[in-house]
């Protein structure tokens, strides 16, 4: 018997492919309907990662590219849990993040913003969730930066987050924003999401309980991946 399926994705909570306020999406969005398929082994399986894939500093962006000292910026912990729509933890799943430095500049050959590169900041990290789906990173808070959408568009401070889940059908890339940032409300990329509550769920809360005195603040960002059926009755679709 094929393993149980994942819940159908509620696309009303996700941005549509075509979201003209975000101009780049106009020519990069399929116009035909997606083909909804039955989940087979290709969909209910996915890559498995282990601790052997990681180095000891991979989740510490303050130290993983430090050459002559720590990076400049507000020191923060970003932590939370990866769970599914049933509220079950997603253990041992790969979480990867990337971000601009404290002045809003990415260490990327294509980023030409005038703000400086930080010689001690790479801007990427990765980790595996533990048995309870918990993950944490240490980093500096990224800066806002300008981008070409409208003449004067600025991205709110954000961290890109990539999560695998237990199967390839749970694969998700998103962005985490910071509580209180006034740029969130007007961001064309944020506003590709049609659902206000879904936007709010991308905003990490300041978590003073997790802050370390005289060291760093903390933000909590929980991630929800698609849930999975628990009943194992096989489908019988018309025609099969």
């Amino acid at each position: 018997m094929t393993p149980a399926e994942y819940f159908q994705r509620d696309r009303s909570l996700h941005p549509p492919a075509y979201a003209p306020g975000y101009k780049t999406s106009v020519s990069r969005s399929p116009r035909q309907a997606l083909l909804s398929i039955e989940q087979g082994y290709s969909e209910v399986t996915g890559p498995v990662f282990g601790h052997a894939d990681f180095g000891p500093l991979d989740n510490d962006l303050i130290k993983n590219y430090a050459h002559s000292g720590d990076p400049i910026g507000e020191r923060i912990i970003v932590h939370g849990r990866v769970v599914d729509e049933n509220g079950r933890p997603v253990p041992r799943t790969l979480v990867e993040i990337w971000q601009a430095n404290a002045s809003g500049r990415y260490r990327h050959k294509k980023d030409t913003y005038l703000a400086p590169i930080d010689p001690n900041f790479g801007g990427c990290g990765r980790t595996l969730t533990d048995e309870n789906g918990y993950y944490y990173f240490r980093t500096v808070k990224p800066g806002a930066y300008p981008w070409r959408n409208y003449v004067n568009s600025w991205r709110p401070a954000h961290i890109h987050v990539s999560v695998f889940g237990s199967s390839f059908s749970q694969r998700l890339i998103t962005q985490m924003y910071f509580e209180g940032d006034p740029l969130i409300r007007t961001c064309p990329i944020v506003n590709t999401i049609p659902d206000k509550a879904a936007i709010d769920r991308l905003i990490a809360a300041l978590d003073v309980n997790a802050a370390i005195p005289f060291d760093c603040l903390a933000y909590k960002f929980d991630i929800v991946l698609r849930g999975r059926r628990s009943t194992l009755f096989e489908n019988r679709l018309a025609g099969n």
């Binding site: 509220g87 990867e96 990415y106 980023d111 990427c124 890109h160 590709t192 991946l225």
Partner: peptide
Amino acid sequence: YLKETASQTAGPYVHIGLAPGAAG
């Protein structure tokens, strides 16, 4: 049930996170 976290674009600098060697 909880609601699935919304997707956002991987953006122009996806290489930093997922293939830093390619980002330089």
